[in-house]
Design a protein around this nucleic acid. Sequence first.
DNA 1: AAACCTATTGTTAGTTT
DNA 2: CAAACTAACAATAGGTT
Lengths: 219, 219
Amino acid sequence: MVAAARRRPSLGRQKIEIRRIESEEARQVCFSKRRAGLFKKASELSILCSADVAAVVFSPAGKAYSFGHPSVELLLERFEAPEGQGQVHVQGEAVGGEGQSVVAELNRQYGDLRAMLEVEKARREEVEEAMDKERGARSQVLAWVEAEVGGMEKEELMAFGAALAVVQHGVAAHADQMLRDAMVLGRMSRAVPQGMENYYFHLLQAGQGHTAGAGDRPF
Amino acid sequence: MVAAARRRPSLGRQKIEIRRIESEEARQVCFSKRRAGLFKKASELSILCSADVAAVVFSPAGKAYSFGHPSVELLLERFEAPEGQGQVHVQGEAVGGEGQSVVAELNRQYGDLRAMLEVEKARREEVEEAMDKERGARSQVLAWVEAEVGGMEKEELMAFGAALAVVQHGVAAHADQMLRDAMVLGRMSRAVPQGMENYYFHLLQAGQGHTAGAGDRPF
DNA sequence: AAACCTATTGTTAGTTT
DNA sequence: CAAACTAACAATAGGTT
């Protein structure tokens, strides 16, 4: 009998001041968590309110992460030239120009893809959780499926992530970060919550530099 | 009559789906609240982690709001010109020889990856649909299983094939090692479901076999 | 070192003033 | 009606594996 005092497994969240986190490690962890949280919020805002949102984050190490709906550069252009008759297809300019621009463009598109996947990953965990609760009675089958599917998804996406990493490695010297990201992406799930496909589609289109659709934008 | 039903002053926050808010008024209110929340999160991220953060939001009416630390313009500049003062030798290897064809090749490969993403998206929508029916009958669960597993294998092979193709193109000398590392590390991070090891092993073998010859090719 | 856990703080949907 | 309010929901700090 170990008597009474059963300590709680965790103290839970504690209040913190909004100051620079001194611990290098804690700061890095916090950066990852909150960056994902920020992108999720941005995604929700754009969906809930049909707003166009872009966010760019630079890690202390100087690495850039971005989120954009419909696309980062499109919105940035709009922001810098509120009066301009935009409509210019940046993509054409970039591709038609020199190699340097193309490489930068590829880098940017990769960033968008990764941001998109990150947001999706966050939303994914929500759906999986809901699904877990549902598998009450007749779910030995589902349990088996989940185990099977879980493993396969992981590998599937790992292969995909590795492919991305390889490509990126050929463009920029970020292989290490890419590899870590591939690990993270490997845990992604595949179901898409309702309302997400639209956003997903737009991001995809934006990646091409072809922002078709959305004829219902009120100016 | 005051007696029984003492209504709470408010029902409090209710759960909502992340989809476009139909009510014009509610959407506007939500936009204001969440925009403020987003900027606050951005601010906290920048302070806590010493990161540079910029966020731009356009209301459905077209009005622009922004947050930026140190400033939106500065960060956007940095974002659009990742190479800055020649810190990264972005395409050091790739452009070393003949930039034109290499870039074209990268473009092609990027296109392939994007195509894969599209396939994945279509597949996800399929899965989502199947999931809806799953809550109805058990027999349909089995149908879902079949569809899921079948489609997944197909995608796995596509993803893997793409990864191999990239590696085979000799974009990066370390590509094969990265791919192997990704798989090995992935295996350690979580238990692999029964029956999965076979596939895993096969994947590993194939990866080694394919890249053995091309891996050490200089470019 | 990344993912999980959980208590706790932080955010916000709906309501009221 | 924008601001305040309230209670439920969401995000996350710290700890564990």
